[in-house]
Nucleic acid binder design. Structure first.
Lengths: 136, 136
DNA sequence: AAAAAGTCTACTAATTCGATAGACTATTAG
DNA sequence: CTAATAGTCTATCGAATTAGTAGACTTTTT
């Protein structure tokens, strides 16, 4: 299951993408209200997305957040990796967050890796091919 | 990511399935040792799998755990639902653990549900078609 | 100077995760 | 009958994570 953080982040970005036509920055408070998200929690999430290069921000009156890339160029997979971490079900089959399993003797002998690679690939096929533009 | 509980459970069942030819029950201690799993933690896991109808057990000398079904009839999806819970990424698109999202106004308007249904279906396609027999 | 709006630091409560200890019960071998 | 074996039950436990809150601070605009 996705954490609320990831869910909120995806929803917030979709919200910004929808409003972003006029290039007028979008307020945290407005997103929080319209999407039923705790404002304080959303602040943390949007800041993280800014620090990851997806969002820009402007302070003061007329400020807010705006996309730094075109919605078509932002995949759900990339966002999930920032907000949620690994997409794979096991660390030893993760492409971006690989880690050795501490209980497995050898990677080849692991009975689970084959299935989990299949799951990973079929999940990525969807997430890499879905962009913010598709969510709008 | 899968919890260690799920990972250990799947590994333990695979282990039992491999040894199950002679119908001689398999010891918790033996699985724990060979698969590098905490014995006490494994006890809890196997008990849960027994209470879910996948395993039978025998106490006393010569006891242990054994499969109640044929490996070909036990899907990884079914096991994951017992050990891990929902397979879907959002409660509102889960087939077996459906719950309404508290933040969403309406299910139809949710921008995320379409993608998450796709992910769910492609994941299930793999997990429903992989059985314990395939892991051996 | 005042108001607006993002940023930063610091908590907190609740839950989950992984693991452990020890007593109890059922079964079998001798 | 009894000793050993092996699963079962109860009770914790520490660490990490999750979701959220409070409030001070900084930058920008009017």
């Amino acid at each position: 299951m996705l954490s609320k953080k990831t869910k909120y982040g995806l929803k917030a970005l979709t919200y910004i993408a929808k409003k972003d036509c006029g290039k007028q920055p979008v307020l945290i408070a407005q997103i929080a209200k319209d999407e039923n998200i705790s404002k304080k929690f959303l602040e943390i999430i949007l800041l993280q997305l800014k620090n990851s290069g997806f969002l820009g921000s402007k302070k003061g009156k007329g400020g807010g957040y705006y996309l730094l890339k075109k919605p078509e160029d932002i995949t759900v997979a990339a966002l999930m990796r920032i907000l949620e971490g690994p997409i794979a079900m096991l660390p030893c089959v993760s492409l971006n967050f690989y880690e050795k399993c501490d209980d497995c003797i050898s990677e080849e002998e692991c009975s689970l890796s084959r299935v989990m690679i299949e799951v990973r690939d079929s999940t990525l096929k969807v997430l890499e091919n879905t962009t913010l533009a598709d969510l709008c």
